[in-house]
């Protein structure tokens, strides 16, 4: 176990030293995805506005003009898009990187960080859109935003672990790419992204309390929409973060050298 963890830390430290590689490749990835388009990466901002606008318009009746609901959806969408994109892209990560893994000696964590960086850059565009919506919705910048930033940082900290865990899952269980993709699509409706939980019973109660994504969302959203320090949400997110990292380190330590034979 100790040897495995040492191996994982060694892989991570080598990858950190090669930060120029994954930062450059992530930028190239984003550039390639939008090459030859008129708006370029700004399409990500347009997509974000389109989704937030649609959900606010379609799913809301009397609250549609309520700025707090618009902020609720805007922050919910920001975090949900980030999580869903990170997870669905992670499952096929090692297959996508097969030629690199089989042809170079780059540490496995370089690929994890390449995807992490890519997801953060993409989320940056959504974040710009979210900030604009909040400012237009009379949510001036105040100290609550700092509390919200804490939640965002915790999610970013959990991202490499999340990527690692799902990348190994995809390598060992190829069907998981489709299972996870479908679950994330359905998961949006079981997560309080656009619906508000206010003590309802039944499935909404379980979907709110027993869904880990709830806490990821609330740790960012509560400070701005409710003006409170999200102690409970941050604590649960923190525990998830620790658990994910423990699992990621174990997987990386035990299987990083075997991945080359598996993809």
């Amino acid at each position: 176990m100790i040897a495995a963890l040492n191996g994982a830390f060694d892989d991570i430290s080598k990858a950190v030293r090669l930060h120029r590689v994954w930062v450059a490749l992530a930028h190239e990835d984003i550039g390639d995805q939008h090459r030859r388009t008129t708006l370029g990466p700004l399409w990500m901002l347009v997509n974000y506005f389109a989704f937030v606008g649609t959900f606010v318009f379609v799913f809301v009746t009397k609250d549609a003009s309520d700025p707090s609901y618009i902020a609720y959806v805007a922050i919910g969408m920001l975090v949900w898009f980030y999580l869903t994109e990170t997870i669905t892209m992670s499952v096929s990560l090692f297959q996508r990187e097969a030629s690199f893994i089989q042809g170079t000696t780059l540490p496995l964590f370089v690929y994890v960080m390449r995807l992490t960086m890519q997801c953060i850059i993409r989320a940056g565009y959504s974040l710009a859109g979210c900030v604009l919506i909040l400012l237009l919705g009379s949510y001036g910048i105040n100290s609550n935003w700092l509390m919200s930033l804490l939640g965002l940082l915790l999610i970013i900290l959990a991202t490499p672990a999340l990527v690692t865990v799902f990348a190994f899952l995809g390598a060992f269980f190829p069907d998981s790419e489709f299972i996870v993709g479908n679950m994330m699509r359905v998961g949006m409706f079981f997560t309080p992204v656009f619906w508000v939980y206010s003590g309802q019973q039944g499935i909404q109660k379980y979907a709110y309390h027993w869904n880990p994504f709830t806490y990821f969302l609330e740790s960012v959203r509560e400070p701005i929409t409710a003006g409170i320090f999200p102690m409970h949400a941050l604590a649960v997110t923190g525990y998830f973060c620790l658990g994910l990292w423990a699992l990621a380190l174990l997987l990386l330590g035990l299987y990083r050298k075997r991945i080359v034979f598996l993809i």
């Binding site: 590689v21 550039g31 390639d32 030629s99 170079t104 780059l106």
Partner: peptide, 26 residues
């Protein structure tokens, strides 16, 4: 150093000059 596959480290959309930089970093 190794040359197993011509295309490893080279991105189709990037210029040759940019690919030299990427290949070097890798």
């Amino acid at each position: 150093d190794a040359l197993f596959n011509i295309s490893i480290g080279f991105r189709p959309e990037a210029t040759g000059r940019r690919n030299i930089v990427l290949r070097g970093l890798i």
